[in-house]
């Protein structure tokens, strides 16, 4: 199987090919980053970092997966790196540490995340759900977000997360169970 002509152009540094790549993937990259980071400006930063990385390392892309999957994988890695390094906390001024018990959904973020693609009637509940998602371990958070926000299949998520389908299934089951527990606590404290 030969290398796709688009890929050859990208490797040659063809600027037009890069622009087409941006056009094709920028929305998905931005939305994946936004779903994972729950922060608009940070999602924009990560989107830029992703494309810089793509441009710099396109020669290393061996075609083992589709270009789209490869870009998705870089996006997830960058977004998780961002979460780990705590950039989001620095920027928004959110201090999770103040609220001690993270198993309880009682975080009070200064700027609750309001995803622009949520239907109006779901806005309030989605904000609460996003807060709960942010408390999940990173693997569960990634799998759940890619599944629910990006609408990816378990197979696609497995490829992106470089893991098995059964592992993704397990992450999703645990994510749902943990989210239900967190929401249950929240309900007891606020909605009752």
């Amino acid at each position: 199987m030969g290398i796709a002509p688009e890929l050859v152009k990208l490797r040659e540094g063809d600027e037009l090919a890069f622009r087409q790549l941006v056009d094709q993937h920028q929305n998905r990259v931005f939305n994946t980053a936004l779903g994972l980071l729950q922060h608009h400006e940070n999602a924009q930063d990560v989107t830029q970092e992703v494309f810089v990385e793509v441009f710099r390392s396109i020669s290393k892309f061996r075609g083992d997966s589709t270009l789209s999957t490869w870009i998705y994988r870089i996006t997830v890695q960058k977004a998780l790196g961002h979460i780990r390094s705590g950039k989001r906390l620095k920027r928004s001024g959110t201090i999770f540490g103040l609220f001690g018990n993270e198993s309880q959904l009682n975080i009070q973020t200064n700027q609750p995340f309001d995803h622009p693609g949520i239907q109006l009637e779901n806005k309030e509940r989605a904000t609460i759900l996003f807060k709960a998602i942010a408390l999940l371990p990173l693997n569960q958070r990634t799998a759940f977000t890619l599944h629910k926000v990006e609408g990816l299949s378990q197979n696609e998520i497995a490829v992106i997360m470089s893991t098995s389908v059964s592992s993704v299934e397990s992450h999703l089951v645990r994510a749902r169970r943990n989210l239900r527990e967190l929401l249950s606590d929240y309900y007891e404290q606020n909605e009752k």
Partner: peptide
Amino acid sequence: MNALDGIRPAAS
């Protein structure tokens, strides 16, 4: 839990 159903991509 179903609040994200029907979510649309955010325009960049």
